[in-house]
């Protein structure tokens, strides 16, 4: 059993302590917006926020988390896709297949929370997620649009 606080709700889940947070979110809690891409912390499709930090949920176990740590998934970023990043993404038509975009959006939102006016270098450093469709330039433009919104 583990106690997690996800999107403002504290939940008890019946998962082994070594279960990756990603799979606890997807299978025990049933929120599938957070995606599995590599399982080794490379691709960032599984990015969520823990106490405001963008982290790769495939590489953290539920046993390593405390109940008072605030986990936010894409479903909890805003109630109606109204976060400035989500709005910019819609305006610029950032997603293609969209599979990596939950992670992209979460990484970008965490960046903006820390650096409201990120430079290109800040974006390069924070945005290490993989997109195979090739949306990188629109992701960059989307972050800048949101920063200036």
């Amino acid at each position: 059993m583990a106690k997690l606080t996800i999107n403002g709700k504290t939940v008890d889940i019946d998962a082994a302590p070594d279960t990756p947070l990603l799979w606890a979110i997807r299978e025990h809690i049933g929120l599938t917006g957070t995606k599995y891409g590599c399982g080794v912390g490379q691709c960032g499709s599984c990015t969520v926020h823990i106490d405001g930090e963008a982290v790769r949920s495939c590489s953290l176990t539920v046993g390593s988390l405390k109940a008072d740590q605030k986990i936010v998934t894409i479903e909890g970023l805003s109630p109606d896709a109204s976060h400035p990043i989500q709005k910019a993404w819609l305006q610029l038509e950032v997603p293609q297949c969209g599979y990596c975009q939950s992670g992209m959006i979460m990484a970008a939102a965490a960046l903006l929370a820390k650096k409201p006016k990120p430079t290109d270098a800040d974006i390069d450093e924070a945005m290490t997620n993989i997109c195979r469709c090739g949306t990188y330039n629109r992701v960059r433009a989307g972050i800048k649009l949101a920063a200036n919104a």
Binding site: R26, T32, T34, A81, Q86, L90, E93
Partner: peptide, 18 residues
């Protein structure tokens, strides 16, 4: 605008894996 963008922004879009 694409017809399939909105749900890709909020985690609602269901892929085969979901």
């Amino acid at each position: 605008k694409r017809l399939d963008t909105v749900d890709k922004l909020s985690g609602k879009q269901i892929y085969g894996a979901d």
